[in-house]
């Protein structure tokens, strides 16, 4: 029972980070039908932004919660700007061409960003423990302050995101554009601005994800986006790509799968089982857990 609760907490906090990244994939797919392969590099750049900003401010181990919050906001802001820039420079000119061309552009942007980071900042840098770590023992379960922070921050961001999508003008415009870009344009909705905002929002969430990821795994590296990015992409597909609640549920399912397999079976089997779950779900529900099954009209 203790092991179960332990893995539950670990799984939820891992899933929360996947969810923050997966939302960017799913929102961009919802509006442009593009799998934004550069998204994992936006995540990586968020980690570098956090690292560089903390360094510039001279914040090291135990700098405190205020410093950590500032670093997180800088990571989110930098990612938002980066995401908008990528959309403006790389994807917008390609919007009228085929989806395959856009996909290849996304891969190109991804390779470019990885090499840019490698050239500018190098590999394998250590991110400071801005907040001193504590562990609480509750009923025999070891609860790390990191996990609590990851879950708390993610929960706040999810509530904010839901409010934004459901209750605001720009959220309404995002939903209209994702349903039909052409009709939205004809109804006077500024489509370009809405798409730009979607990228900013998704990228900012990836930035928050990067910061939270560094709390548990404090290594900053140009390659660090690849694996979390891939897992988050799998989570988005699992939940039904294009669906916001789907991305969150998919990410939590994936995170829980991974930690339970590590805990009860063996950590070497972790990724294999996670991907098998994906295959099984897609066999029975090809459009994902929350995906809409689209019937092609003939």
């Amino acid at each position: 029972m203790t092991l179960f609760l332990q893995q539950l907490i670990n799984g939820l906090s891992l899933g929360a980070i996947y969810a923050l990244i997966a939302l960017g994939y799913t929102m961009v797919y919802g509006t442009l039908q593009l799998i934004n392969f550069a998204h994992s590099e936006v995540f990586m750049m968020g980690a570098f932004a956090a690292f560089l900003f903390a360094g510039a401010m001279g914040w090291g181990d135990g700098a405190g919660v205020g410093a950590a919050a500032a670093v997180a906001l800088v990571a989110m802001g930098s990612c938002a700007i980066l995401g908008m820039t990528i959309e403006r420079i790389a994807y917008r000119p390609m919007r009228k061409s085929t989806r395959l061309n856009m996909l290849i552009t996304a891969i190109g942007v991804s390779i470019f960003l990885q090499n840019l980071a490698l050239r500018l900042w190098g590999t394998n840098l250590t991110f400071p423990d801005l907040i001193a770590k504590t562990n609480w023992e509750i009923a025999g379960v070891n609860v790390a302050s990191n996990s609590v922070m990851v879950l708390g921050v993610t929960l706040v961001l999810m509530i904010g995101l839901t409010w934004l999508i459901e209750k605001t003008k720009i959220g309404l415009a995002m939903r209209a554009v994702s349903h039909s870009r052409e009709t939205a344009a004809l109804m006077g909705i500024p489509v370009d601005r809405t798409i730009s905002f979607t990228f900013a929002l998704g990228s900012a969430l990836a930035g928050a994800g990067a910061f939270l990821f560094l709390l548990g795994a404090p290594k900053v590296d140009p390659q660090m986006g690849a694996m979390p990015g891939l897992k988050a992409f799998v989570a988005a597909v699992l939940g039904g790509i294009g669906s916001v609640p789907g991305a969150v549920v998919g990410a939590l399912v994936l995170g829980l799968c991974e930690t339970f397999v590590s805990g009860y079976v063996s950590s070497t089997w972790r990724d294999a089982v996670a991907f098998c779950v994906l295959i099984v779900i897609l066999l029975y529900k090809p459009s994902g857990l929350f995906g809409k099954h689209i019937v092609e009209k003939v």
Binding site: K169, L172, A173, R175, A176, S178, H179, A184, M187, G188, I189, P190
Partner: peptide
């Protein structure tokens, strides 16, 4: 994906 009300409301955006 939008309600009847939202369909009209979104057109007020401009």
């Amino acid at each position: 994906g939008l309600t009847v009300e939202e369909n009209v409301k979104v057109a007020l955006f401009r």
